[in-house]
Design a binder for these strands. Structure first.
Lengths: 242, 242
DNA sequence: GTTTGAATGTCGCTT
DNA sequence: AAGCGACGTTCAAAC
């Protein structure tokens, strides 16, 4: 791939010209970006309408489409990967359409003016390596179970219960069954509910009369979550991710 | 704004040239996009490392930063709005840095090659109008409460309880208190837990002995959620958003 | 394909 | 600032 072939750009192009560029780029699996004044209509899981304004549009070769304004981390409109992009020129306006099924969703972008268009031939062999996730926290506890409490012995991870898979399943110093739910950050009531369902499911699953301890491991909890923990007879251990 | 001033672009620029363009664009509140071979390091709530590859980078005037590969709807790396962008040229490589505090987070992008750079002056006065949301579902039920059940009378929305605000609070035909939790799509156990907390909180809040009915309104429920509903003595009404 | 829960979730609203 | 819940959440893994 030569430098010249990797990027194709147009500034304030004729509609037919940019249509051709976009069409060819989609065909060869390039990434397309457009900037200009446009309107956007979406219909699918919900429906939305966006009046005229300057936006940045990205069409990815995997079928994803993104419409970004000058504000916000999230696109104002989008289409998920797997959608089919198409382009046309009607009445001097550039029209982009991205459709998918299951669920049926359509995104239509109509450009009044295209200020800039570009096609990029992308090559990205690298995987993102993330640390500091819940999975990391789990590994840390498995290496040093005393972080939960002295004498804690992990017996299984992702142990199945009727209420779903438990993060860490084990027993305490005196042999009582312990369920540990991990969260990498401060938790609210939802996580307590999750832990409670696991404890409940295990108490039913095991022999009657078996008391199961539930321990929530997280950096901290909200007030409501703390109350809910107390009410449910569950415990909390404060532990920061590395 | 003239057509010529709205967009500035460079293809395979010298490092110093693109640094100046980016610097000026950040200063004047323009949106910047770059495409080229780069590495990305993030450190903050988590930490990540991304080896060399072709990516598309966006710097927004509100402080958001986005790094997109050729795949996926979500950026591979990013920085939220409110971050401070800076650019420098070191050893012939273009370096972008986006930092924020609270929490402290840093995103560093190092370009081996910049294939394309652009600065866009954005103007977007329009608000996005979305329909088909939970708020729409609520309005629909308030207009026609029989959708929940014949004889249902809404008394309040967002009624405060110790467990949070209830979507719709009302009473049934026979005067029993009813709590309605709305979901615009198929729900899992979390929504049942939420409804249960509201019912529980209201039964404590009202005079002792007052039975409170809890009704989950959603298109459908998962198996686990249905079991949890039954166990908690809660009800379910199937209702699709328009 | 459905279900489940994590996420650097993000976003908006209320306290 | 913190808490809480919605979101066209998206995403990946398990079933």
């Amino acid at each position: 791939m030569t430098a010249d072939s990797a990027v194709e750009t147009l500034s304030y192009p004729e509609t037919d010209t940019v249509r051709d560029l976009v069409d060819r780029a989609i065909d060869r699996g390039a990434m397309v970006t457009l900037f200009g004044r446009c309107t956007v209509e979406y219909d699918g899981r919900a429906a939305s309408s966006l009046g005229p304004g300057d936006r940045h549009v990205t069409l990815k070769p995997d079928g994803a489409a993104l419409v970004h304004t000058d504000e916000g981390q999230q696109p104002v409109n989008w289409q998920p990967p797997g959608s089919a992009h198409s382009v046309s020129a009607a009445d001097g306006a550039l029209e982009l359409c991205s459709e998918r099924s299951n669920p049926d969703e359509t995104l239509e972008i109509s450009f009044e003016t295209v200020a800039h268009a570009a096609a990029f031939d992308v090559s990205d062999p690298e995987e993102l390596a993330v640390t500091g996730t819940e999975a990391d926290l789990k590994e840390r506890i498995l290496e040093d179970p005393d972080l939960v409490e002295p004498g804690f012995t992990p017996l299984a991870t992702e142990r199945a219960t009727p209420a779903g898979a438990v993060d860490i399943y084990g027993e305490d110093e005196s042999g009582r069954t312990v369920v540990v739910e991990l969260k990498r950050r401060r938790v609210g009531p939802d996580a307590v509910g999750q832990l409670d369902r696991y404890v409940d499911a295990l108490e039913r699953d095991l022999h009657a009369g078996t008391a199961v301890r539930g321990i929530l491991v997280a950096p901290s909890v909200t007030d409501r979550a703390r109350q809910l923990l107390a009410k449910k007879g569950l415990e909390f251990v404060s532990l920061e991710p590395t």
